[in-house]
Amino acid sequence: MNEGRELDEKTVLLELKERLGSVLIEARSIGKRRVLVTVDRDHYKVTVLALKELGFDYVDAITGLDAGDHLEVITHLGRKVSVSIKAIVPRDDPRIPSIIDLYPGVVFYERETWEMFGIVFEGNPRLTRTFLPDDWPQGVYPLRKDYDARRPEPAR
């Protein structure tokens, strides 16, 4: 397994730009061995696939984020160089393709993001409530910014 071992963040950026070109809304290095790539949700899976072909065989985590006017799904890939793919997801239509067919181990990360942000990962067969209490109100996503953690909604 080469796992991107011989690549540094500059090579990763160059390779990504060469393979994906104008798909990337933004691509830059944010620190030593840290790369941040922004794409829209239609090109999210293509970007993950391009990294997989580059030898990235490990997904660290999937992070959801509420940026106010839109939501974001950030997928952290890679062992040596950590590439964060940020996919922009519209707030009124929170859907994004699942990458479970590329990396079977991400199933929990996608489920957590679904539960906490209401982002639907299309293609993940196991998006069911597992983590919030049974009596948690439907359609309330605790890690979104409009949810006030200091005054939780009454359970019933």
């Binding site: 199933v107 929990f108 957590e112 539960e115 196991r126 069911t128 597992t130 983590f131």
Partner: peptide
Amino acid sequence: VTIFDERGHVL
């Protein structure tokens, strides 16, 4: 964070 899984059987 979260957890729990089962192939085919989801609680």
